[in-house]
Design a protein around this nucleic acid. Structure first.
Length: 288
DNA sequence: CACTGAGCCTGCTAGC
DNA sequence: TGCTAGCAGGCTCAGT
């Protein structure tokens, strides 16, 4: 599932390819893929517009148009954007059933949106809607402003279980289930640990883990477990770096050998090592 | 405010 | 081997 590094890779791939292109037509294959506004209003806003840039906010792809509005695309679980230099009749025959939308450009190229599970969303945001959209998202973890101190203030501003807090896009933008499990494992924090009660050393470890994991994944063009592909159809290479995500409960911890455990937290499967990531009980003495 | 659960979807897999 | 029930989960919304 695409998280920050995967979405960023898609944007970096597509930006040079789409800049300056004029949208000549939009085709919609599944009505719920278009989130807003109506198809008529979407066409009015988008067809004839020229693309200024492709960028990312949280896990959202922003295609900024010449009218200063933007097409936003959320890949959710299985969405894929694929650029094609020419309109090809048999573009991807076996994938055709999952083609949900197509942007055609005036030079004959096109941008295809595939999405097996139909969770992905395309929308148009008028210029005056973009500030509110941006304000709805929290800190970008790869922004230099995301320091260990910033993370500490975020964690202490809430009294919540740490994993759901890290997944909350309005608090920290771009983290998903894979990278949160990996970051908690590396920083030895139990996913249910109360965010306001994490000590300084663990906060520093968590900050370092988040930045390191995301930077490495980005350098390797993302993690491909099944569906994820860049804007040119290339898989990422980060999957070999995952330590615990995807392992089954009972599997020996890669660090200490204890059996890993699985919990469902906020409707998301969570894998962790009960020995490396102990849940701090009420009488627990502070750990060094 | 924090948390829970339903709903959206369909391919894959575990278990019979 | 073949079938089916349940799992996978990002996000929104309603309810406690």
């Amino acid at each position: 599932m695409p998280e920050l590094p995967e979405v960023e890779t898609v944007c970096r791939t597509l930006d040079p390819l789409l800049r300056g292109k004029t949208i000549s037509a939009f085709w919609l294959g599944w009505h719920r893929t278009l989130e807003r506004p109506t198809l008529d209003l979407f066409n009015t806003a988008v067809v004839g517009a020229t693309i200024e840039s492709v960028s990312r906010r949280a896990k959202l792809i922003l295609i900024t148009l010449s009218n200063c509005g933007a097409v936003t695309i959320h890949l959710r679980m299985t969405g894929e954007l694929l650029f094609r230099p020419t309109s090809d009749a048999d573009r991807n025959a076996e994938r055709e059933p999952y083609l949900r939308a197509v942007f055609s450009f005036s030079d004959g190229s096109e941008l295809l949106f595939y999405d097996t599970r139909k969770f992905g969303k395309i929308a148009y945001r008028a210029p005056n809607e973009l500030a509110a959209l941006d304000a709805g998202y929290g800190s970008e973890p790869l922004d230099p402003a995301f320091t260990s101190e910033r993370l500490a203030s975020i964690l202490r501003a809430h009294r919540r279980q740490t994993k759901p807090l890290l997944l909350d896009q309005s608090v920290i933008a771009g983290l998903g289930n894979i990278y949160v499990d990996e970051a908690l494992f590396r920083s030895r924090i139990h996913p249910l640990q109360l965010s306001s009660e994490i000590d300084d050393a663990h906060i520093r470890a968590l900050h370092a883990a988040i930045v390191e994991i995301l930077s490495t994944a980005l350098a390797l063009h993302g993690t491909t477990l099944r569906d994820y592909r860049s804007g040119l159809g290339e898989p990422g290479q980060n999957q070999s770096r995952l330590l615990v995500y995807g392992l089954k409960p009972g599997t020996p911890c890669p660090v200490c050998g204890s059996p890993l455990e699985r919990l469902v937290i906020g409707q998301r499967g969570s894998i962790f090592c009960p020995n490396c990531q102990p849940f701090p009980g009420p009488n627990d003495t502070p750990r060094r």
